[in-house]
Design a binder for these strands. Structure first.
Lengths: 202, 202, 202, 202
DNA sequence: CATGAATGAGTTTTCATTCAT
DNA sequence: TATGAATGAAAACTCATTCAT
């Protein structure tokens, strides 16, 4: 962009505040859950007044949903962006795994937040729709590759969920300090996953 | 009744109430989380007075912990009970997967509860210790089979967490109605998991 | 008394329970106050069921009042019983002081209880009337002795309240471990009190 | 207003509320005791919302302690302030008695509160320390004057406690409407007290 | 008679949200 | 626009009292 900062300074300060609130909120939501986090707590961590939060968000629920949508689409973008549609399946898997793990490494709080809140009753329709989108994508990947006889034939979704679950399971273990995520273990993980989904020669 | 009652009737009624409270609590905790569930809500669902809860449990936290310990050990028992230690690894995997899935089918709320609360700050030392136990078990399984050159060589825990994550991922998908759990899909899932962990011939 | 124990044994056991409840209650009321004491707490200390208390007393308030009346009249009896009406005033004072202190030594909890509850809103009319009676007595003593020009002339009640307050103050200090009650200090106290009330020669 | 306001208006309003809460609380605590007073009751009397109380005080106990410390030090200041250390003992007694009675006349609720709560289990260390300070003072007064052969020789504390008890006893009687506190009765009381403690010529 | 389990009203305390400044 | 003091509704928990056994 050529422009830069033509926006009135107020608007910038304003955006800063909104960001501060969101940043404080993900951290707290990820750590203590939605109901376990008090709004004034978010305000304090964000360095703003409690009332200020309500100038930027209608309610506590609005914050969760804003966060969910933002980070879900960021995650999606990280995975889908420059996805090597033309590359061999193995490479596509590599892309997927390494992008997700990289995202989780760079934004652990965001990832934790997404995992902890992925099916919460306070998510609104838009958030729910985004959740569905990601899944549709993964399923598309498998359906396509199944037809190409590269991955196993399996009832709809089974392999996709296995894969996604495996990734989340590994990350959880890492966060809880139960294992480490080295290049070596990442490679081993990816290889195992590849064996899980690919069609093996008879 | 002529006899038959092994316990004094008081004790039975009392146990019934305790059970009713626990049953109501798992459901609510699984659905809405710990902080999202109010004690009077539990009481109403259990069909007892709000004060009654505190005759059976010291606090709300005591309920979560009682539930965690109870269901964690039930799950452990379901998996470990008559584990075919002498059978081939492939069969052991079958035992593991089918037992976990069977447990999850029979006690979906319990399983969901365990998953949602597995690392919560309000769990006490005993609960935490039980969590650790299960993990130690799974790792033992892999270490042993790795040495036997049946499963892949991989940094500690990676395969175990992949496997557990895959199972949880699949179940989550089922609960959210995103896929079904038929014998067919279960078999496919198991086979994929086997491919993931076994050492493939060159 | 000739009779002895013709009452049915049930009645005796019954009386025992009533006594146990009252004994437990004074202690707790003296230590933690009326509102600070829970009825089930009294029951446990008395070794009876919580419900049993309500077979003997209509309510928690009924217990306080029963206690107040019982111990107030016991204290009154201790002081008034064989009061040396004909003896010199100095000796009467000695009787008064030594009887009160002796009562407080033998029944410290009862005395504390009386002091702590002497003007509480949950006392009923009968209890209040008893409070008044004791005071009337003390005033009578002073009025009579004042006329005899043995004690000072002072507006109604002043000397009586000084005396009673002094006794209570001393006892409080003793209970709180701030001073000791030896024969020596008792004698000194009594002498000081005598100097306080007696009419000194010009 | 042109100026004059030393504090920002917010701070003033805030202080007002804190004061209102404290004022409501002393009255209720003095009348009905700590456990007999509900927090919302304090709030209503103070004209604030129930939740507001917790913006100013951590807990109900914090209120009692704030009150105890405030009024205890006020009482102490009233007695110790410009104490005539060089004056004859008789005059010192006059100072003490008239200051205490004057304080009690001006702040009857505060005095009642102090008397009713002077040894309560919910008082914190600071409150307890203040209680001890006052006593040390009184004892110092007597020890010094005893050595000067002006007051009687008596075991430690006896005269101090007699004196303090007498004052409290008199005041209680006044509050309960059992006697009046006229200049005449005050003088008589003081004279009697003087006779009680002074060393009489043989 | 005696019990103690059961309870709902009441306790202290927290918190999402509002609003005067 | 930003604040944070204020609040009442609701949370967790306690307790005087009842009542089935």
């Amino acid at each position: 962009m050529v422009s830069g900062a033509e926006k009135p300074p107020r608007a910038e300060a304003s955006a800063d505040k909104r960001e501060a609130i969101l940043a404080a909120a993900v951290e707290l939501f990820a750590e203590k859950g939605f109901h376990g986090t008090a709004v004034p707590e978010i305000a304090e961590k964000a360095g703003v007044g409690a009332g200020t939060i309500y100038r930027y968000f209608e309610s506590k629920e609005a914050i969760v949903n804003a966060l969910f949508q933002r980070h879900k689409s960021a995650l999606l973008a990280a995975v889908v962006g420059d996805f090597p549609y033309e590359a061999p399946t193995r490479e596509q898997l590599h892309h997927f795994v390494s992008r997700v793990l990289s995202f989780a490494r760079k934004h652990p709080v965001a990832f934790k937040f997404l995992e902890a809140h992925h099916h919460a009753p306070y998510l609104d329709d838009k958030s729910r729709a985004m959740e569905a989108n990601v899944i549709a994508l993964a399923n598309g990947f498998f359906e396509q590759n199944e037809r190409a006889r590269v991955v196993k034939r399996a009832p709809a979704g089974v392999l996709a969920w296995l894969m996604w679950g495996a990734v989340v399971g590994l990350l959880r273990a890492v966060w809880e300090g139960r294992t480490e995520l080295t290049p070596k273990s990442e490679a081993a993980f990816e290889e195992a996953l590849w064996d899980a989904i690919r069609r093996h020669p008879e």
